[in-house]
Simulated scan of single mutants.
Amino acid sequence: MRYFITGTAGFIGFHLARRLLEDGHEVFGIDGMTQYYNLKLKEARNAALAQFPSFTGRIGMLEDNGFLREAVMAAKPDVMIHLAAQAGVRYSLENPKAYLDSNLVGTWNILELAKELQIGHLMLASTSSVYGANPEVPFRESDKTDEPLTFYAATKKATELMAHSYAHLYKFPITAFRFFTVYGPWGRPDMALFKFAKAMLDGQPIEIYGEGKMSRDFTYIEDLVEAIVRLSAVAPAEANRVTKPGVSDTLSHQAPFRVVNLGGGQPVGLMEFVETIEKAMGQPAIRKMLPMQKGDVPRTFAAPDLLQALTGYTPSTTVEEGVKAFVEWYLDQGRALE
């Protein structure tokens, strides 16, 4: 099959593109190569993908509709997977316009092209941040998501709503998936695991927000990719509406549109996460305890039932396994790409 993926020089896009290429598919990828973090890491990911003859990569911004249109039309994809976005909850407090441009304008450009092509399946990345500080756990796709705590979360909720309207009006299938604290090798330097490992090696304190009382439903990158690959074969339609007792399908009654959590439903406390990193690094961390940051949520906790019902799969890599894999990559390659 032919896949068009946005953000292939990014953490998740790189892993997904590499998996699809290894499976024998054709991948056409684009990336803006923005300066949000060191380009050396993005360039290394791009170079790894370029080793595959069936990969075509181009550099350009989602907001540049002319560039995007030319790229999509050249790719003629069967499936489009839109991962590119301005990421980071905290950075949205500093530069909200970057989120407006990339996450809203860029996504609208993608929707317009998918409409024109009547794409077989459009997949859009959303986030667990849309649940805000929801006190009910685990977070279910049917839960209320109308109280975002950051502009980042607000833009992601907006992309879901925009996508539903396009699926309804133009009748092409769209799946929006909500990520839960993805981590692993080739991760972003602004992520906690990367920052903690670097600080520990540099002999610097690690900053632990919320006095360490937060918890996260950590999702290992390879598990996430497996879930996306499986979901790509399940374009939303009445034929695959889930009717299993105890599982609420989010398949719209007005459109071929569905929202799915991508998480394992096994949250881990922040202090346990720190201790796992210390064990994998073979050294203690200097801990600097800090209050909760503006926009942070106390916990994330996915209900994975719908993903399991649709694909027969639930992310299951333990934090111990995932952190160990990251530390091995970081010491071998990541340190040189900071």
Rank of each mutant, 00 (worst) to 15 (best):
residue 4 F to K: 02
residue 5 I to S: 03
residue 10 G to Y: 04
residue 11 F to Y: 10
residue 15 H to C: 07
residue 15 H to S: 03
residue 17 A to H: 04
residue 19 R to G: 01
residue 19 R to H: 01
residue 28 F to N: 00
residue 32 G to T: 00
residue 39 L to S: 15
residue 41 L to N: 01
residue 45 R to H: 14
residue 49 L to M: 01
residue 50 A to V: 00
residue 53 P to D: 03
residue 56 T to R: 04
residue 61 M to R: 10
residue 65 N to Q: 06
residue 65 N to I: 11
residue 71 A to C: 09
residue 75 A to C: 01
residue 75 A to L: 04
residue 80 M to W: 07
residue 84 A to M: 04
residue 88 G to D: 10
residue 93 L to E: 07
residue 97 K to A: 11
residue 98 A to W: 12
residue 100 L to E: 15
residue 103 N to G: 11
residue 107 T to G: 02
residue 108 W to L: 12
residue 113 L to S: 02
residue 115 K to M: 05
residue 116 E to M: 10
residue 125 A to Q: 11
residue 126 S to G: 02
residue 130 V to N: 06
residue 132 G to P: 10
residue 142 S to D: 11
residue 142 S to I: 11
residue 145 T to Q: 15
residue 148 P to Q: 13
residue 152 Y to R: 09
residue 157 K to I: 14
residue 158 A to L: 07
residue 158 A to Y: 07
residue 161 L to T: 08
residue 170 Y to V: 08
residue 170 Y to H: 11
residue 175 T to D: 12
residue 176 A to L: 08
residue 178 R to S: 10
residue 178 R to C: 06
residue 181 T to K: 03
residue 181 T to A: 06
residue 186 W to E: 04
residue 186 W to M: 03
residue 197 A to C: 15
residue 198 K to W: 02
residue 212 G to K: 03
residue 216 R to V: 00
residue 233 A to Y: 05
residue 233 A to S: 04
residue 234 V to M: 07
residue 236 P to C: 06
residue 238 E to W: 01
residue 245 P to Q: 01
residue 247 V to R: 04
residue 248 S to D: 14
residue 249 D to V: 11
residue 262 L to T: 13
residue 263 G to N: 13
residue 264 G to R: 11
residue 271 M to N: 02
residue 276 T to C: 08
residue 278 E to K: 07
residue 282 G to L: 11
residue 288 K to P: 02
residue 289 M to P: 04
residue 295 G to D: 05
residue 296 D to N: 09
residue 301 F to K: 02
residue 305 D to C: 09
residue 323 V to Q: 12
residue 337 L to V: 13
